[in-house]
Simulated assay, not measured.
Amino acid sequence: MLIVFSGLPGTGKSSIARKLASELKAVWLRIDSIEQAIRESGVVSGSLNDAGYRAAYAVAQDNLSLGLSVVADSVNPWMLTRNAWRGVGLRSNVAVLEVETVCSDKEEHRRRIEARASDIAGLKLPNWQAVLERDYQPWDRDHLQVDTAKRSIADCVALIQAQL
């Protein structure tokens, strides 16, 4: 199974994806970790473009071919990236669950952005203004939307597991 997360920074994607992957004993692929490793390698100067996503697609497909479940954790902001993730699942002949995290309480979302610290060395997190300006396109197909406002991580994970 491939479980693909999507959502703006600060909506709880990584916290939920990490816990879900742990409970399922699945591979957790976090774009932030991959992109930061690419930056630190010095191979790419400037924009990474889609390098992190492309690396994650390949690693996901490798792990799916071994029969492992994969939890993909990224902003996944466009239908282009969402379709690419879906393509990984289709090529691997596995079920794909697409999960979008949202935080409907704007003050709570802002508080999360302003209070959080990066758990990835060297990763610069976006501020609230950058989150508001993010190019995040609406979905055009069915997917599971999880509103994380006033919900615990465990409750969000349970909602997702109920769909598996």
Rank of each mutant, 00 (worst) to 15 (best):
V94W: 05
H143M: 11
T81C: 04
G10K: 13
H143Y: 03
A17T: 06
D105H: 06
E107R: 14
R111S: 12
A115I: 07
G10A: 15
D135L: 07
R54F: 12
M79I: 10
G12Q: 01
S69R: 14
L164E: 05
N63S: 14
M79V: 14
W78R: 12
Q61I: 02
L29M: 09
G89M: 08
H143D: 02
D32A: 09
E100R: 15
R30H: 05
M1L: 11
S6Y: 03
W78F: 14
R141D: 10
V96L: 01
Q161R: 15
D73W: 00
V102M: 03
I34W: 03
L144C: 05
N127L: 06
L20K: 00
N76K: 01
V71A: 07
K150W: 15
L48H: 00
A154E: 15
K13Q: 11
A121Q: 11
K25V: 06
H109W: 14
W28N: 08
R91L: 08
R116Q: 12
L20Y: 02
A26S: 13
A55S: 12
P77F: 13
D73L: 05
L164I: 14
L144A: 03
I16H: 01
N83V: 02
R39N: 02
M1S: 09
D155W: 07
P138A: 12
W139F: 15
R82I: 07
S41K: 13
D155V: 05
A21K: 04
V43M: 13
E114S: 14
M79Y: 04
S45T: 15
Y53V: 08
R112T: 09
V43T: 07
L125V: 03
C103H: 06
S69L: 08
M79Q: 14
D73G: 01
S15N: 08
G52V: 02
A21M: 04
V75S: 02
L24D: 06
V131N: 05
G46V: 06
V88D: 03
A84F: 02
P9V: 11
V70E: 09
P126Q: 13
H143S: 10
A72R: 04
F5T: 10
E107P: 07
V99R: 02
S47G: 12
K150S: 12
W128F: 08
G10R: 12
E98F: 10
V88P: 04
L164M: 15
D50M: 03
P138N: 10
S41E: 11
V88Y: 04
